[in-house]
Nucleic acid binder design. Structure first.
Lengths: 220, 220
DNA sequence: GTCTATACGTAGATAGAC
DNA sequence: GTCTATCTACGTATAGAC
């Protein structure tokens, strides 16, 4: 039996967690400089201040690092959107619903543009041999469900046709925003969210969605 | 002065071109198996039946191979769409215009899904250190112009509002389709164009575009 | 134009001492 | 838990003979 105080295991676990966090933060920094596919464990080790083999105490492989960056990215984006939803006030009109969907979509895209490394992993497949685990992908599905329930609320209020909350509509909305992210990251990577050629299309794309699903239509 | 017949240089140039084509075709095959970022010149050489150094007689670097695949991809896609435009008959109604935009967009996305390696290079940035040359990018701009002029025709016929042919509208349309391509390639890479979860959204996305820019609107 | 040989560097991962 | 040492392998690219 050990003579160490009972608190020791907790301290150890905490330090270990800190090491894991530092490795991941550093890995993201490296990827930001060389592209997601160019991650290099030697460089990560150098910056963290350890030798490459030490990294294997925390991650069994390079793929495991990718998977954790991917998973944390989706968790953070999900939390970012949930926080937006909490902060957003209630919606009282069709126009308010449109504004709300615009702002929510902007929050979604903004996070991606401001976290380009994570976004590359989340929206592209830039790393040969790396496929995210299903668990890591779960928050992406949760986010889709969140969008669906927001739209369902607008439908219930009579501001959108029922079809607006169906799978295809939700997916179309997500797909359009992922197009914005993808085009912005690949064609104009140096621009920020506020001055991007593609991010500025968000209100327009939302208007298209609303015009199509609006209940105030003269066409069948 | 050489004693060879004057026709010789042509033959040599033709054989050289055939070698270049074979290298590119093989490189695309390899990338299809390992991902665009995983291209490996040794494997290309092995399949072509030469030693790796011989490849350098045809391409000065690995990046040059990427750039040529990228450039040919855009040229082929441009030609694919021009052929579609030639084959498509004249449009006589707003409904016909909608169908035409649907079919053209589908042709665009279909090519990308059926050429996933090229599409990865054209719509993502999967290769660390590779940025396409401006010349290679030119057909992408030509394609955008092609879309713009199609939409301008619909505007001139009175089927769409003038804004439908403005830069933001054209870019929004392109962006939505690139979202379809990106999502399909990353989330459901094994599906074909005809059974994809995302490719099926094309008609819906086109309807959104048309509903927004239609002249038959009861809203200002 | 293709080859052999090799430079030159990197990279991920493991064994075993401390 | 970190280190040294090393493995093993790959991969791009070049030099120079044929």
């Amino acid at each position: 039996m050990s003579a160490e105080p009972a608190v020791e295991p907790d301290r150890r676990a905490r330090r270990r967690q800190e090491s894991i966090d530092e490795i991941l933060t550093t890995a993201v920094e490296v990827m930001a400089e060389v592209g997601a596919g160019g991650l290099n464990l030697g460089e990560v080790a150098r910056r963290v201040g350890v030798r490459p083999p030490s990294l294997y105490q925390y991650f069994p492989s390079k793929s495991a690092i990718y998977d954790e960056v991917f998973a944390r990215g989706w968790r953070e984006l999900e939390e970012h959107i949930r926080a937006f939803d909490r902060a957003a006030g209630p919606v009282h009109s069709a126009g308010g619903a449109r504004d709300r969907l615009r702002a929510g979509s902007a929050a979604f895209v903004r996070w991606a543009i401001e976290h380009p490394v994570q976004a590359q992993l989340m929206f592209w497949r830039p790393v040969p041999g790396f496929e995210p685990s299903p668990e890591a992908f779960a928050p992406a599905l949760a986010l889709m469900e969140l969008t669906r329930s927001t739209l369902a609320g607008f439908v219930a209020a009579g501001w959108l046709r029922p079809e607006a909350a169906e799978d295809d509509a939700v997916r179309a909305q997500t797909t359009a925003m992922s197009g914005v992210i993808s085009q912005q990251l690949s064609n104009e990577p140096a621009a920020g969210f506020d001055d991007g050629l593609y991010t500025r299309l968000i209100p327009l794309l939302i208007d298209m969605f609303f015009d199509h699903y609006s209940t105030r239509k003269d066409r069948p």
